[in-house]
Computed example of a mutant assay.
Amino acid sequence: MEINGVNFNPQMNPQEMFETQLKVDAHNKENTFEGRQIKNQLDKDDFLKLLITQLSHQDPTQPMDNTEFVAQMAQFSSLEQMHNMSEGFTKMAAFMNNSEAVSTLGKTVQIEVGENQITGVVESVTRGEVPQVLVNGNYYNLEHINAVYGY
């Protein structure tokens, strides 16, 4: 096709298509957009931003129905309470795991790692998200303990 005396071909050759696809894929794999972190899920802040945007762009001659607004605020409140409960449960689970690990100090435990079974006295405990116990000079995750003996 010729436009104003210039040869113009709107079709890409296979090499150009391949290079373009590589660039598109690389761009899509980035986790940022215009300096903002891309998230896969909406959180309470996103919900509030959507609600504020909706309110600020509503038609003044036909404002949002009061019941709809109250329903959205109730959803927001429920979302925030569920988030707070989830954080509380996470903290409680970590505390319980740490307490369980500490309760094994000085006791004989049976640990199973793959096909191996190790028996020994817990000499030390590390705390944190994944508590570990020191048995026979090696650290093992708490989840690998099969049995605790009280002698």
Rank of each mutant, 00 (worst) to 15 (best):
Q37C: 05
R36P: 03
F33N: 09
D59N: 07
M96S: 14
Q75I: 08
T104H: 09
S77A: 14
F18N: 12
N13Y: 14
N9K: 01
L134D: 01
K44C: 08
V135C: 04
G106I: 05
E115N: 03
K23I: 15
V135F: 04
E19H: 08
S78K: 13
K91S: 07
Q117F: 14
M92R: 05
M85P: 00
L134G: 02
K44M: 09
G35F: 09
K44E: 14
A74V: 06
I38N: 11
M85D: 05
D45A: 03
E143P: 01
G88I: 08
V135G: 03
P10E: 13
M96N: 15
F18I: 10
Q110L: 14
E68Q: 13
G120F: 05
I145Q: 03
I38L: 15
I118V: 13
L48C: 05
M85R: 07
A71Y: 04
V113R: 09
I145Y: 04
V130T: 13
N7S: 13
D45E: 07
Q81H: 06
V109A: 01
G120E: 04
V133N: 01
A74F: 07
S78L: 15
G88F: 12
A71W: 03
G137H: 07
Q21N: 14
D59K: 02
G88E: 09
L48P: 06
Q15P: 04
N141H: 05
N40T: 04
L134M: 03
N31R: 15
T32L: 10
Y140W: 03
H57P: 00
G150H: 14
A74T: 05
Y149H: 10
E123Q: 11
M12E: 14
V148E: 05
V122Y: 00
I38R: 12
L50E: 10
F18W: 12
S124Q: 13
I38W: 09
T119F: 07
L79K: 12
L105N: 01
L22M: 13
E100R: 10
F69A: 04
N84C: 01
T126M: 07
D46G: 02
L105Y: 01
H83L: 00
G150P: 04
N98Y: 09
V135E: 02
V133M: 04
Q54L: 08
T119Y: 10
F95E: 04
E87S: 05
V122N: 00
K91M: 07
E87H: 06
T61A: 13
Q21E: 14
T53F: 00
E115M: 03
G106M: 07
F8Q: 01
N40I: 02
S78C: 06
A101P: 01
Y139S: 01
E112W: 06
A74R: 09
A93S: 06
S77W: 12
L79M: 15
Y149N: 12
D65W: 02
N28H: 13
A147Y: 07
S78G: 15
L134Q: 02
V122L: 01
P14A: 14
Q58T: 06
N97Y: 11
E80G: 08
Y151I: 09
G150V: 11
V70T: 12
P14D: 12
V109T: 00
